[in-house]
Computed example of a mutant assay.
Amino acid sequence: MSGEKTVTLTPGRLRSWPLPRPEGDKSSRGTVLVLGGSRSTPGAVLLAGTAALRAGAGKLQMATTESTAAALSIAVPEALVVGLPETDTGAMRGEMGDQLAGLVRGADVVLIGPGLVDVEETGALLEAVLDVVDADTRLIVDAYALGALAERQSLLHGRKTYAVLTPNVSEGARLLDRELGDDLDAEAIELASTYGCVVSLFGHVADPDGSVWREETGDSGLGTSGSGDAAAGVIAGLLARGAEPAQAASWGVYAHAASGQRLAVQHGRTGYLAREIVDGVAPILAELES
Rank of each mutant, 00 (worst) to 15 (best):
G172C: 08
E23H: 11
D131K: 13
L285A: 03
T64G: 04
T137S: 09
L111Y: 12
T50F: 01
R275M: 00
L60E: 02
S2K: 14
L263A: 00
A236K: 04
I277Y: 03
E127Y: 04
R29M: 12
V278R: 00
D229M: 07
G280A: 03
D219G: 05
T64V: 08
G58S: 09
R269Q: 02
T166P: 07
L60G: 01
Y162G: 01
R29D: 11
M92S: 12
G223R: 13
A232C: 09
A286E: 05
L149P: 11
Q61M: 03
A188W: 07
T224H: 10
E244V: 13
E276F: 04
V205D: 09
L60K: 00
A55G: 10
V82C: 10
L201F: 11
V81Y: 03
A257Q: 04
K59W: 02
W251T: 03
V7H: 02
V119N: 06
T6I: 12
G56C: 06
L156M: 06
R105D: 15
I140D: 05
D142A: 13
D118G: 09
G106A: 15
A44R: 02
P11L: 08
L191T: 10
A148E: 12
D142E: 15
C197N: 00
G210H: 10
R152D: 03
L285S: 01
T65D: 02
A91V: 14
K5F: 13
L146Q: 10
L72P: 01
S220P: 05
C197Y: 01
L156Y: 04
D131Y: 03
V212D: 07
A148I: 12
M1E: 14
W251C: 02
A257M: 06
D88V: 14
G233H: 05
A55Y: 10
A230T: 12
R214M: 00
